[in-house]
Amino acid sequence: MEERLTLEEQGEAARVFVAGLLEQFGVAADVGTRTLDEETVEVTATGSDLGLLVGPRGATLAAVQDLARTVVQRQSVSRTDRILVDIGGYREKRSAALRRFTQGVADEVLASGTERALEPMSAADRKVVHDTANEIDGVQTRSEGEEPRRYIVIELAD
């Protein structure tokens, strides 16, 4: 057990874990880290033949991220920061698509004046939708329902 790891050290521990895992899978990839904000670091793996590690709707990627967090937590006595993992650009493509979708729904809400409930989404996806919608003038968001069926409603701003 180490003492509190810096964000950079946590990112490096996660990077080493993900790189080793890809090696066990026998896939060639470049694995790096980038700091997204002062408490978020993302491990990014790029290369070909990474689809298997993304899985259906990113399920395998989500599992890899869970495990990377577990491994980093094991090395740190105190709480850890946010550790994200992206493989083959999946998360980036997914959030770009979600941002476009959110903009489209927000436009409809603004035109019709009627709120729209979205499909249930993961917490990570909801964050993208909240962040995107809250930058659009005239609409706001709220979450309803219980996990794992929690969903967002986009409505006209008060």
């Binding site: 066990q24 899978f25 298997l52 399920a59 395998t60 989500a62 869970d66």
Partner: peptide, 17 residues
């Protein structure tokens, strides 16, 4: 059971290989 489930998911992907 979250870690166990993540292990199962990643191992299943390796098995697919």
């Amino acid at each position: 059971g979250r870690v166990a489930q993540a292990i199962r998911t990643v191992v299943a992907a390796a098995g697919a290989r």
